[in-house]
């Protein structure tokens, strides 16, 4: 009986490994022709007479856009594949500080009201700093990017327990329809067509993967007033689950 169970577990390991391999192969091997496509598109652009018809130009711009999207997707996938392999350095960070840094780097921050509710008693923590920064970046960027309001509002709430930090990021955007909320952590999934908001749909998948690796968790809720709430748990002591 134990034998069978062991086999199952072993098979599960193999399967996980395959998943890793798959992501690795996709992100690495396909990168080569991807680079070529991107390069060739640039050459064509250089050679293309700008006086050709508007249709052609608009088609070509669309083509470039798709090339760009494909590249972003590839990069997303690459990042996903690297989650458990790179940037695994432990160092001390200050959580409110990295949040404000993340906000600083946003492009469209003028029209956003950020509200940070800090309930932390230990703001400094020795952790996988890069990973945490990444999760925060993804979530904060999403909170702004998918918000179609003129004046946007993002609330970031920082709590902690004995074992973990609990960070809640809520926005007053359109939220996620109930029917698809299970899918948002899948790679490349976007609620709307990628043409509506130019996004690769990799951010949440990467964030979710990071939390899986560090042994934390992430969940989505719809805000009562409309909009999204993403809450994630970041363990204080990290045992890598690779």
């Amino acid at each position: 009986m134990e034998e069978i169970e062991r086999n199952y577990k072993k098979e599960l390991e193999v399967l996980k490994q395959e998943y890793e391999d798959f992501v690795y192969i996709v992100s690495h091997d396909i990168k080569t022709p991807m680079r070529a496509i991107s390069n060739i598109a640039t050459w064509i652009e250089d050679d293309l007479d700008p006086s050709v018809g508007g249709d052609i130009i608009s088609n070509f711009n669309l083509l470039k856009n798709r090339v760009g999207r494909l590249e972003s997707m590839m990069n997303g996938l690459l990042e996903l594949s690297r989650v458990n392999r790179v940037e695994l350095e432990f160092y001390e960070i200050n959580i409110p500080k990295i949040i404000s840094e993340s906000i600083e780097t946003l492009e469209d921050k003028e029209n956003v009201d950020f509200l940070v509710i800090n309930n932390l008693s230990n703001e400094n923590v020795d952790t996988l700093g890069k990973k945490l920064t990444r999760v925060l970046n993804h979530l904060i960027t999403n909170a702004v990017r998918f918000n179609n309001k003129e004046k946007k509002e993002v609330v970031i709430e920082l709590n902690e327990t004995a074992e973990a930090y609990e960070i809640k990021i809520s926005d007053d955007g359109p939220g996620v329809p109930e029917a698809v909320k299970d899918k948002i952590f899948s790679i490349f999934y976007t609620v709307n067509s990628k043409d509506v908001v130019d996004s690769t749909g990799a951010g949440l998948a990467i964030s979710s993967k990071i939390l899986q690796v560090v042994g934390g968790s992430i969940k989505y809720e719809t805000r009562d007033t409309g909009g999204s709430i993403f809450t994630f748990n970041w363990p204080k002591t990290i045992t890598l689950k690779i």
Binding site: V23, I30, L77, S186, F188
Partner: peptide, 8 residues
């Protein structure tokens, strides 16, 4: 695998 390949 399906999603990745399909979406790409």
């Amino acid at each position: 695998a399906y999603i990745v390949s399909h979406d790409l």
